[in-house]
Design a protein around this nucleic acid. Structure first.
Lengths: 207, 207
DNA sequence: ACCTGAACACCGTTCAAGT
DNA sequence: ACCTGAACACCGTTCAAGT
């Protein structure tokens, strides 16, 4: 076979297969990727710009998976919670992919609409304009950190090696996916409560 | 030269050189690393277990750089702020190294004392025992995310491609190192305020 | 125990040839 | 325009030899 009537590959097809490969715990390598797609390795180079191009294709596919939640007239807390959870789920469903994504420099954030919706929610919350973008970026940083946290081993700290307060806390601590989920939810709650406190402080100052 | 009287290499020497290499923006490759150290490539294998062993050595060196702040009788907010800032500085001084570190699974956290000090501070703050570890992990996740944020390009979003609220905010937004530093400080403030709010809520419930 | 050079397996990329 | 196989450069790892 040389040139088929219908192209066998596309950036989307390659990105999808690469995500599958990486999610299954294997390295991102072109030979296994081509094998999985049933093409020769060199075929990939007609659609993506090398290994980095494959990673960009993965990012594209991942972003297209992002489901923007219903835009009901919910209060800003609810809007923030839903929107941030949705991005986090996108990341945490593929933590190993995320690891590769932060390897290539991206000029546009994964979802511009995510930034816009959050900006509007924070404005509604009453946060001063000059604090909005930095706050969004802090939230994004936390989401990424909390998604990478999913790569942690089952048991983070050997209780035997610790003492003091830690030693009393560790035995009752959750582990695995439950622990990771709790970390995300706790962090998001703290940030939301922190924003509320900051809004209240700003309002008090302007009175 | 075969075996020298004094060993030319050690895990620490290798880790230090590897950090330098990666900090300078180059890939972590054994040939350049060996060249920089003035030894042959195969010499490295007498001290570290392959490339992954090099990364573990880098982690060791990085952790030894961590300076635990003065343990004055400061209030919990101040203790938290100082301690978290110190880990963040450790990470953000070598964001590319951090990128490699999250590649290898680690069973013990970078600094056990960091966990212990934070646990004690949160207890002093009045946070219920069952919330302490998850809160620490959320803080750690944010620190890592905020350090990786340092790898972002100068300009995150092209203002021309955005509209709505975003378009009015972007032109006044900071960039580069200043932006990154602001993201960390804002996020940490929000989390600390969030903890304070949560402590207050828990106290109200128990009354 | 620790350093070396050579050999080896592997992996990403290029390119001329084919439709 | 798109797929292929072969050639190529590169990179991590191993190992026998040397002190």
């Amino acid at each position: 076979m040389a040139r088929p009537l219908k192209a066998l590959l596309s950036q989307e097809i390659i990105g999808q297969a690469a995500i599958q490969l990486v999610d299954s715990g294997r390295e991102l390598q072109v030979v296994p990727l081509a094998k999985q797609l049933g093409v020769s390795v060199s075929s990939l180079y007609h659609h993506v710009d090398g290994r980095e191009g494959i990673i960009r294709a993965m990012r594209q596919v991942m972003v297209s998976e992002y489901k923007s939640p219903e835009r009901s007239a919910a209060d800003w807390r609810e809007t923030l919670r839903r929107e941030v959870e949705q991005t986090w789920i996108m990341y945490v469903s593929h933590p190993r992919v995320l690891q590769l994504l932060i390897t290539v420099v991206i000029n546009e954030p994964d979802a511009l609409s995510f930034y816009e919706v959050l900006a509007e929610a924070l404005e509604r919350a009453g946060l001063p304009d000059e604090e909005i973008l930095t706050t969004i970026e802090a939230i994004e940083a936390f989401s990424i950190g909390a998604a990478l946290d999913a790569l942690s081993p089952e048991v983070l700290i050997d209780p035997a090696h610790s003492d003091g307060k830690l030693a009393t806390l560790l035995p009752h601590h959750s582990s695995g996916e439950v622990r990771n989920r709790e970390v995300f939810e706790r962090g998001l709650e703290l940030i939301i409560d922190g924003i509320a406190a900051r809004v209240a402080a700003a309002a008090a100052r302007s009175n």
